[in-house]
Nucleic acid binder design. Sequence first.
RNA 1: GGCCCAUUCGUCUAACGGUUAGGACGCAAGUUUCUCACACUUGAAAUAGCAGUUCGAUUCUGCUAUGGGCUACCA
Length: 511
Amino acid sequence: MDRKVRVRFAPSPTGPLHIGGVRTALFNYLFARRNGGDMILRIEDTDSNRFVPGAEDYINEALAWLGIKIDEGVREGGAYGPYKQSERRDIYRTYVKQLLDAGRAYIAFDTPAELEAARAATPNFQYDASTRMNMRNSLSLPAEEVKALMDAGTPYVVRFLIEPGRDVEVNDLLRGKVTINSSILDDKVLYKSADDLPTYHLANIVDDHLMEVSHVIRGEEWLPSAPLHVLLYEAFGWADTRPDFVHLPLLLKPDGKGKLSKRDGDRLGFPVFPLEWTDPKTGAISSGYRESGYLPEAVINFLALLGWNPGDDTEIMSMDELISKFSFDHCSRSGAKFAFDKGRWFNHEYIQMTPDTELVGLFRPVLKANGVNDEDFTDEYIAKVISLVKGRVNFVAELWDQAKFFFNAPETYAEKDIKKRWKEETPTILTELIEVLRSLPDFGSKAAEPIVLDWVASKGYHLGNVMNAFRLTLVGECKGPHIFDITELIGRDETIRRIEKGIEAIKLPEA
RNA sequence: GGCCCAUUCGUCUAACGGUUAGGACGCAAGUUUCUCACACUUGAAAUAGCAGUUCGAUUCUGCUAUGGGCUACCA
């Protein structure tokens, strides 16, 4: 059956979208784009107790930052709306009634306390064919009593009537046929009268059907309930238009047990959220990839390769390349530990590929944060600085560590470098160097270097000691880019000022 | 406990019955160099175990082990 590819990403607004959710969204997006399909963003807010303000905005902002574009959704609109489940109550009510009328579901009045008691009384209690007649529901109770309870406005739920002893087949595009027996399924709650809202299972099936979703691409945690979903499609009479299922392997904690969870937060030393998130209740802040200096392209590239490969050794791929190569044929079925080391490398690669002029805009806030009045420096100057040091950083923020001496003269000088390079005759030599620098007709890196090196050679000085002492006065330690690139950028006056300051401040180490 | 899914270097993965089991991150060494990096070169590093099918198993089957998921009026 050939039909238009339509996929959906359906998060619950219960907090910030975590990185596993982002990966699911990405795979949906890549698959949709690869096949000329539509990408739907559906907000699954059927649990009124877990609603978190701001979460929906966060989801939109995160996907936008990452470059995952939504075709239909709450903001984007579309012909299949509303795209928020809490606005679809009328629709769900109709379909709940359909199931009830067809005898595929029933009404249950058991209170939470009664359910708890039943679970406590029976080991491995399950609300199903073996127990339902002992519970308080429209199957076990006389019709008059059911009516009386309903008339009295007693809270109830609607449960799906599962026929036991049937093998239910789920055909997963990644895993092949998965068969489970319906006896292990319980009579799932589909609807709660208390808030007049369905549960995930009902809403999910109804919406996917009505929105003409062709492929349900979601995390592996949904695999056990997929048979229930198959049964629901059947009960509604939608079996032949049922979407294909793809259950993606999970993202696991890098350090031990379990799937990567929202609560891991900063415990692991790297973000698990795309954007920084402030908990509206506690005020606790969880770091985000954006704020941690990751480029969205790097996050996307890294995530795409967790559980998928292009079929060859290519690793660096833009979104467009990912789209053109994406296929479930190259998806793996096993969970992937979310080790972030490689993510750092991806970010390094993407920083190298990003034009310096573009990095300037990202670096200015870092300068400000470090007390530099960045207005004092032109874009051209900052871009040149970046070009000299970006090869050695993984993150934009790390540029500061590598480049601060381009903005401030050193205040201190590294002890161990002094010990190694500062000799008794150093002040004299550097004083001579100042004269050489003053006499240079052209202070540019290319022009200055041979003249200075010739001078060192002609004097018979130790090149390493002279240059490193020179470097020490400019940088404060023995590190950094080519020395004449530094002097060219900071200029002749500042270079000489720093040498003089160094001669003044650096003392010969004892012994 | 029950049910389901998975298992190749430390990590992400390639090899879809025949390879010296490949690549990348990380790690180590070397080259380069005024320094620290970058870059480049090289290296160490894996088929969970046991049966079976087969001329031949990383690849197919079974069992065991291990890991993971689900087992709510959460998604």
